[in-house]
Design a protein around this nucleic acid. Structure first.
Lengths: 196, 196
DNA sequence: GACATTTTGTACTAATCAGTCTACAATTAC
DNA sequence: GTAATTGTAGACTGATTAGTACAAAATGTC
């Protein structure tokens, strides 16, 4: 039974949000013009402004969706293959993406953190909180992997997680800056050594 | 004795290029509008287009200047304090910049690599070449430090340099994404361990 | 001093940007 | 069926973008 009055929406809000998220992920915030986003989302400008506040608010909601999606993905993966393999899947996934598509999108939150740094303070705060949360999730994964004996390094989980994520982020920018395969292969090895 | 005919330039080409480089370094390529650049350079639009080809060409020349300046700085530093200390000065300098100004500009070449990735192929190529060269310089520093006994790690210099620069780049994006002091302190420790 | 040459200041152009306005279409409530 | 309500299409706005056109200014040569 219908409860809303007036002409019904011709699109699903969640679906177009996911389309916007993917467009932002591939092109970055500033580089995604509203017209391009609308084309990607398959809706018209008037519908957009009727449903969303503005471009910045849309982006903020995309960041939120990204964080939640990523968290759900990693929790599921951990349950399937265990905490250490889930962590390694981060870097393995990135390298597979590079092999298959010839490029990598990186992490939307990290990309946005760099792009919004000293420019959009409201977004920067949201990004900082999101990344901090994901780092804490990684820390719990490391801790669990240590308890299971998958990681024998006795350093604090927080340290190990921080270094792993840091090296992972370094690998992303290194690849995007045009590193050769030899460099990438060694970074991959380094990442896996950090979780030994 | 003057050799050129016509009205003389009212500015020094090298000086305004350096001013443009610093503006690009602080604001990024896309985020630097020509008007902002002209204000920073202290010249008018007509003078700009008379001297430089266009914005992209200006940026390309700024990248070239950046690479040369950085190389000269590191060679000088190495002669003063030795290869290992010169390498460590990379990360120490970044952390000092953060303490003093509350933010960091990062490496212009890396920043530009990420910004131009899949967008400006001509610039991407130049950036890739420049970064590869700087990595090779670091590799020679590591090798020299190993020969002097400053670095006892017996891994190949190429590996050590790659991992150090990678962790360094990771630290830059991590800071810019809003990491807390505890995380930064441990990354600093990790960086120095990589050169032990 | 006249003239060729080069630089400079200012006004302009055409494209693109995020966002708004308005007329109309599609629905529910009564 | 009519009114109230909500969504949609497309034209419009004003700001900003990189880049151009042209006349005036400043120099060297003769």
């Amino acid at each position: 039974m219908r409860t809303t009055v007036g002409r019904p929406k011709s699109f699903d809000e969640g679906e177009v949000l996911a389309l916007a998220m993917n467009y932002f992920w591939e092109h970055g915030y500033e580089n995604s013009s509203l017209d391009d986003l609308l084309t990607a989302m398959g809706i018209k400008k008037s519908s957009f402004y009727h449903t969303f506040k503005n471009k910045e608010d849309l982006f903020s909601r995309c960041l939120e969706l990204y964080g939640k999606t990523l968290l759900h993905y990693f929790e599921t993966l951990k349950n399937e293959v265990g905490p250490k393999a889930a962590l390694l899947a981060l870097s393995e996934g990135m390298i597979n993406e590079l092999k298959e598509t010839g490029k990598i999108k990186g992490c939307l939150l990290m990309n946005s953190g760099k792009e919004c740094y000293n420019r959009h303070s409201a977004l920067s705060h949201q990004i900082g909180v999101g990344l901090q949360f994901l780092l804490e999730v990684c820390e719990t994964f490391v801790k669990e992997a240590q308890e299971r004996g998958e990681i024998s390094n006795l350093k604090e989980a927080k340290q190990i997680a921080g270094r792993y994520i840091n090296a992972f982020n370094g690998m992303i920018v290194t690849i995007q800056a045009g590193a050769n395969q030899e460099v990438i292969n060694d970074l991959r090895e380094h990442l896996s050594e950090l979780l030994e």
